[in-house]
C-alpha cells in the first residue's frame, strides 16, 4: 500500500506492505537515525514523534500512520545547528555508545515541550520508556536538566 507522511517537515510518499511497522518502513527508506533494539516496544530506541506524541515506531503499523506528521531526531537539529537538547546531551557526557541517544533526545524534547521546568522525578518518568545500558542514566538526567535550563534562558 501507499501513504503520505509528513516527515521532518517534508511530505513524502511511502509504499509498504500492509502489515509493516512504521519502524521498518522508515528505516528501509533511509531514516536510519531511528534505531531498532527489541521490536516489542520495550527499549525506546525506535521512538519518533507521531503527530507530536512520543511513540515506539515498532509498535505502530505504517498503515495507521497515514497522513500524519513524523519527527525524528534529525528533524530537531544536525551537527551544524544542533537543538539545545542535543547539545546538552553532548555537554553533559550523556552520550556513550549513542544507540539509545536519538530516542532519549526525543523523549527529553517531548517532555520539555509539555513541561519546560521538570524536576528530577518528572525527568526520570519521561525517560521510563528508553533503555540505556552504558550510562546508568545519571548523565542523561543531568542533560535533560541542563537542556531545560538553557531553553528557558538560564544556562
Amino acid at each position: 500500500m501507499e501513504a503520505v507522511f509528513r516527515i521532518n517537515g517534508k511530505e513524502k510518499t511511502f509504499s509498504f506492505d500492509s502489515d509493516a511497522t512504521l519502524l521498518a518502513v522508515l528505516r528501509d527508506s533511509g531514516y536510519t537515525e531511528i534505531k531498532e533494539g527489541c521490536r516489542e516496544g520495550a527499549c525506546g530506541a525506535c521512538v519518533v514523534l507521531l503527530d507530536g506524541l512520543l511513540i515506539n515506531s515498532c509498535q505502530v503499523f505504517a498503515a495507521s500512520a497515514a497522513g500524519k506528521e513524523i519527527i525524528t531526531v534529525r528533524g530537531l537539529g544536525d551537527v551544524h545547528s544542533p537543538h539545545p537538547v542535543q547539545s546538552a546531551f553532548v555537554d553533559s557526557g550523556a552520550v556513550q555508545c549513542g544507540y539509545c541517544t536519538p530516542g532519549m533526545v526525543l523523549a527529553a524534547y517531548s517532555l520539555l515541550q509539555k513541561n519546560p521546568d521538570p524536576d528530577d522525578s518528572e525527568i526520570k518518568r519521561a525517560l521510563d520508556g528508553n533503555l540505556c545500558r552504558c550510562t546508568g542514566y545519571v548523565k542523561i538526567v543531568e542533560a535533560v536538566r541542563l537542556a531545560a535550563g538553557r531553553m528557558q534562558g538560564n544556562g
Binding site: E33, R74, V79, Q86, F89, G93, V95, C97, P102
Partner: peptide, 23 residues
C-alpha cells in the same frame, strides 16, 4: 580534562552510522 566525546554530537543528531545503518 572532560573533553566532549568526539562522536557525541553526530550520535545525538542521529547522523553517525551503526552496522545496520549502512545501505
Amino acid at each position: 580534562k572532560s573533553v566532549t566525546k568526539i562522536d557525541s554530537l553526530g550520535l545525538a543528531a542521529g547522523m553517525e552510522k551503526f552496522t545496520d545503518d549502512f545501505p
